[in-house]
Write a protein that binds this DNA or RNA. Structure first.
Lengths: 225, 225
DNA sequence: CATCCACGTAATAATGCGGTAACAAAACAA
DNA sequence: TTGTTTTGTTACCGCATTATTACGTGGATG
């Protein structure tokens, strides 16, 4: 499953590194910025699913980022990182649209628990990209060049299976087991047929597939390009 | 906009009174319970927009209430009230679905800021718009082109569930669990039937639904259009 | 070069899911 | 109680989806 994306805006290198490592350990996709300017850029460029935001930053401070984000309609949860004894700032931050805060120095376990809780609240969307496509598992939708491509149930399950195992060779048997279920008796041909329709919806040249490649005598391999 | 409703479950009378007064001062509609049993009853009877929950309670403790609420599909933010030095309990509470906590003794200003922040998160106005409709969760009323459309209890719970998860694919099972409750045995068909009546009240063309779309083999997806 | 075999896919047939009407039961109100 | 509204179930139909069959194609192999 593609992980929820977290953006950390923090200027203290050691802390930044520690946060990044810990979050990545938990399976999140982490991007970082070490000042407010870069932070804003990253925030608007690729809005994350959650923002960890230091309040005291060079150039652009945390409040402005917070306000800018909400003004722009970004709704992801924001956790502020504050130094001790900034109670007034905390209240101000929460009023500007932040969701939570932790006071430095903080326990990493507590922070992780908060991140987890807030992300679950928001139902963080695992989303895969390949070719010109975007696959949204939460909404169960496939987009190609931004427009939706309708998938049938089987097609969707198959694509999901592929995407989650990108780069690995998959035998028809394993595909049948996972997508069709081991109880039913279905021909190999059915897999092929489903692959064909998938290709027609996903590939640029369905007859020269580059995303779903066939491996003779084995099955298929999905490439996350 | 009618006021957001807050439920306080707290057994210490003085604290309870103080919280109630302060929150009412801020314009919230407050109900209270002084033990876990009454708390659960109030919670399920008339789900509030936010829950203030003491962890240490006679009869039923805060964790159980928290878990029970989430299990029942209640999504309102929960703020835990904890005694000092219960860090482990805090983590546990957050994992059970709580959103935030304050440690006693706490500043009332801080608490109010958090209440405000969490309520805003949940939708500044507890009012949703989609299609030609306006749904007022606080008043529990649906309007279409300005005139009220009566909803039955089930219909309302279902619509509320949909609206709060707009854009996400929802399985019939999750719908059954959340709207009907996991204890009862109800058929998938019942969901369909309820969806049909909802569509007739909400959609422009009930036979070409655009708000409540069916996802074959899965369930439904509500689009906030 | 000829053969073989696995894969691709069109056409067709079968399946099963969801919509909904009609009925039954349950909850609720008077 | 009795009547009324809401809620759940059954049954059936229509239709999209899915499987199969059949055949074509191309690449590998000796």
């Amino acid at each position: 499953m593609s992980a929820a994306r977290v953006l950390i805006i923090e200027d203290e290198p050691a802390l930044l590194r520690g946060l990044k490592d810990n979050l990545e350990n938990e399976g999140y996709e982490v991007r970082t910025a070490n000042n407010g300017e870069k932070g804003l850029e990253a925030l608007f460029n690729q809005p994350p699913d959650l923002l960890l935001l230091d309040l005291m930053l060079p150039k652009v401070n945390g409040y402005e980022i917070c306000r800018a984000a909400r003004k722009r309609g970004l709704e992801m949860p924001i956790i502020m990182l504050t130094a001790k004894g900034q109670e007034e700032d905390i209240v101000r931050g929460l009023e500007l649209g932040a969701d939570d805060y932790v006071t430095k120095p903080f326990g990493i376990r507590e922070l992780l628990a908060r991140v987890k809780a807030l992300l679950r609240r928001n139902g963080a969307a695992p989303e895969y990209r390949f070719g010109r496509c975007r696959l949204d598992l939460t909404a169960r939708r496939l987009f190609r060049d931004g427009t939706e491509v309708p998938l049938t149930a089987k097609e969707f399950r198959l694509l999901e299976f592929f995407v989650k195992r990108a780069g690995r060779a998959l035998t028809r048997d394993s595909i049948l087991d996972a997508v069709w279920g081991q109880e039913v008796m279905v021909t190999d041909r059915s897999v092929d047929r489903c692959v064909t329709t998938l290709r027609s919806k996903v590939e640029d040249e369905p007859h020269n597939p580059v995303l779903i490649r066939t491996i003779r005598d084995i099955g298929y391999r999905f490439e996350a390009l």
